[in-house]
Amino acid sequence: MQLASRKVRTEGVTRPGVADLMNEAGLTHGGFYKHFASRDDLIAQASAVALAEGTAKMERATHKNDEDPRAGLIDAYLAKLHRDTPSTGCALVTLGAAAGRGDQHLKDAYEEQVRTYLELITGLNDDTENTRAEAMLTLSALVGAVLISRAVADKNFSDELLQAVAEQLKRYGSQAPSALA
């Protein structure tokens, strides 16, 4: 399942073929049906695993900066390493479009992960006013920045994008809510 999870994060849900996955896992194509009802079943399970694995990484990232856990999360998420290793990165980035077009199981798994991340980000803020909206803004900016940084061809531009979004998110988070009104 870990192999399929990495493939889904790297290639999305439409590309990995059963034969390729089984070959990489050292299993026969026929053995596939002992474990999964269909390719869709495999993709759904792999997607759920890929999404859920992100929670522990996000929680660890908040401990990278004891003085400002939100900044630690931002720095870890917008790191070049995260951009450059989609196979172990956040599945929200890779699976967003597929979840939008996907079946109910994928949509539910995606939404559950979004809600989990929002709860985690909301919990990092001592001020309860507007924290849910701020968490939504933060998560959207994080996911969007990694998505765009992976899609552009110019690495310098990609690096600039990650750095600029990180700086702006940290600046926004350090302002008092009254200053934002």
Rank of each mutant, 00 (worst) to 15 (best):
Q2D: 15
L3E: 09
R6P: 01
V8W: 03
V8I: 15
G12A: 07
V13C: 13
P16M: 11
P16D: 09
V18F: 02
V18G: 02
A19Q: 06
D20M: 07
L21Y: 12
M22K: 03
E24D: 15
E24P: 02
L27R: 05
G30Y: 09
Y33M: 04
H35C: 00
S38P: 02
S38Y: 02
S38E: 01
R39V: 05
D41A: 13
D41I: 09
D41P: 06
I43P: 03
A44P: 00
A48K: 15
A48F: 11
A48N: 13
V49M: 13
V49D: 10
A52H: 06
G54L: 10
G54M: 08
T55H: 04
T55E: 10
K57Y: 06
K57R: 13
E59I: 14
E59Y: 07
A61K: 11
N65L: 13
D66E: 10
D66M: 02
E67D: 15
D68V: 11
P69A: 12
A71N: 04
G72Y: 12
D75F: 03
A76N: 00
Y77N: 02
A79W: 02
L81E: 08
L81G: 01
P86L: 09
S87C: 04
C90Q: 00
L92G: 04
L92Y: 08
V93A: 07
T94C: 08
L95H: 06
L95T: 09
A97L: 04
A97M: 03
A99P: 01
G102L: 08
G102K: 03
Q104V: 15
K107T: 08
K107H: 13
K107F: 11
D108E: 12
A109P: 01
E112C: 00
E112H: 06
Q113W: 01
V114E: 00
R115Y: 07
T116W: 01
T116M: 06
L120M: 13
I121Q: 02
T122I: 05
G123R: 07
N125D: 14
D126P: 01
D126W: 03
D127W: 14
E129C: 02
R132P: 00
A135V: 04
A135R: 02
L137R: 08
T138Q: 05
L139N: 11
L139D: 11
S140M: 12
L142K: 05
V143L: 07
V143I: 15
G144K: 01
A145H: 08
V146W: 07
S149L: 06
A153Y: 11
A153W: 07
D154P: 04
F157M: 06
S158Q: 11
V165Y: 05
L169Y: 01
K170Y: 08
G173A: 15
S174T: 14
S174L: 10
S174F: 09
Q175M: 15
S178P: 00
